[in-house]
Amino acid sequence: MPILDTYTIYFLIFMGNLVMCLMLLIFAKTTGFEVLMRYYTYAKLLQTSGAGVLLFRGIVPVDFSVIVGNGLVFLGIALEVCCIVHIDRVPLKSVVKRWLQVAAGLAVGFALLYLAGANIGIRAFISAMSIAVYSLVAAAGLFFRSNSTNLRRVVALFFLILAACQVVRALYAFSLGPNHAPFSLSLSQMFAFISIYLHMLISTMSFLLMSREVIDIRLQEAATKDFLTGIYNRAQFMQMSEKLLSLMIRQQRPVTVFMIDCDNFKAINDTYGHAVGDSVLVNFSQDTQAILRKEDLFGRYGGEEFIIFSPNTTDSDALIMGKKIQSAILLSAAGDLTIPKYTISIGTATMIPEALADMEKLIKRADQALLQAKRNGRNQIVQF
């Protein structure tokens, strides 16, 4: 059967990395050079340089080609996997530095083995196993994240397959030992180089697709979440609560709406500044979110006023939940020296589907209860 020239395949790997570098540079220049995109472009530049040095062995001195070429590839793949694992957040410089330090250590170890006379089979084994390990790290980093998406899980599966291909390549090279020839015309070598070519394509395509997914997620969050606290904004809260209310009406289950206001918030802003006021709102949102159930909806109604839609909650359940929120706020404010001590007032209204099935009326009643809590001296719960 006809066999593809492995040298040609490796040349395509070099050219593929080079073209992708140019495309990344053009893309970044036209859309903005974000930090993660810059790191990924550096990764492809390192891999392209390393592949070029290895490709032109003979023109380039052999020792230089083996040591420097493989070293650049190790560094490039490490930085690439770092970017893929941190696809939805920019890694700290210290984190990137540790990734590169590990890769540099691997490159130095490889160089020492070469200088010590390790045969080409052992060197190919180490190179392939290193790529396999990095592929496994990428797969684990994408699959076992709490916010993993379907796209990331599919990409993780691809990296798992690529890792298996590299393990097969490594074992084959190790079995041949000094008889291993990188550019030999054999079926096994053809598949080995094709797997490297696929790794180059899949990793770059996956990075770009996942980057686009991150942008889409952020745009959706910007449209539905409050920019400061990260909870639902008023429009999204109302839309979701209306749907959930309809379900509760059909199931004839009780629903409670909480209207919550941070007491004397204007005084906090005037005394400590708006930055501290924002910290208070964030603190309140985080502490309250930790108490609420998964089915509860929590939103910022406006300014320092918040709203909770709590399905399957009676008036007695609401009182217990309100006291829990107040207790959590007191404990948190006492233990956090960055924010002043503050209290909250809570008004609640519970819907019995047979008697009331109107969201606007329910919110109005909870708001009236909140106003009464303020008139009564604040820092208390009033139920309509």
Rank of each mutant, 00 (worst) to 15 (best):
3 I>M: 11
3 I>L: 06
6 T>K: 01
11 F>L: 07
15 M>H: 00
19 V>G: 00
25 L>N: 08
26 I>P: 04
26 I>E: 09
26 I>W: 05
32 G>C: 02
35 V>M: 13
35 V>S: 13
35 V>K: 13
35 V>R: 11
36 L>A: 07
38 R>Q: 15
46 L>M: 04
53 V>D: 03
55 L>V: 00
59 I>E: 04
60 V>Y: 02
61 P>H: 01
63 D>M: 07
63 D>P: 03
63 D>I: 09
69 G>A: 01
70 N>W: 08
71 G>W: 03
72 L>T: 01
73 V>M: 05
73 V>T: 08
75 L>K: 00
85 V>H: 01
88 D>R: 04
102 V>M: 04
106 L>E: 15
107 A>V: 02
110 F>V: 06
118 A>L: 06
124 A>C: 14
126 I>C: 05
127 S>E: 09
129 M>D: 15
131 I>W: 06
143 F>N: 12
145 R>I: 08
152 R>L: 12
157 L>R: 09
164 A>L: 11
169 R>M: 06
174 F>Y: 15
174 F>K: 11
175 S>F: 10
176 L>E: 04
176 L>R: 10
177 G>S: 05
179 N>L: 15
184 S>N: 10
185 L>K: 08
186 S>M: 12
190 M>H: 05
190 M>E: 08
193 F>I: 06
199 H>N: 10
205 M>A: 08
209 L>D: 01
210 M>R: 04
216 D>C: 07
218 R>A: 15
219 L>V: 11
222 A>H: 09
223 A>V: 05
225 K>R: 12
226 D>C: 01
232 Y>M: 12
239 Q>D: 10
240 M>E: 14
243 K>D: 15
244 L>D: 12
245 L>K: 03
245 L>Q: 04
246 S>L: 12
247 L>A: 12
254 P>D: 07
255 V>C: 06
257 V>N: 05
259 M>F: 02
260 I>E: 04
267 A>H: 08
269 N>R: 10
278 D>V: 08
281 L>K: 03
281 L>R: 02
282 V>R: 14
285 S>T: 04
292 L>T: 05
293 R>H: 10
294 K>Y: 12
295 E>C: 12
297 L>R: 01
301 Y>Q: 11
305 E>A: 00
310 S>L: 09
312 N>Y: 11
315 D>R: 14
318 A>W: 03
320 I>S: 09
322 G>Y: 04
325 I>R: 03
329 I>P: 13
329 I>T: 09
352 I>M: 11
356 L>S: 10
358 D>S: 05
359 M>S: 06
359 M>C: 06
360 E>S: 13
360 E>D: 13
361 K>W: 07
367 D>H: 02
370 L>M: 07
375 R>Q: 14
376 N>K: 14
376 N>E: 14
377 G>N: 07
377 G>W: 09
380 Q>L: 13
381 I>M: 14
383 Q>I: 13
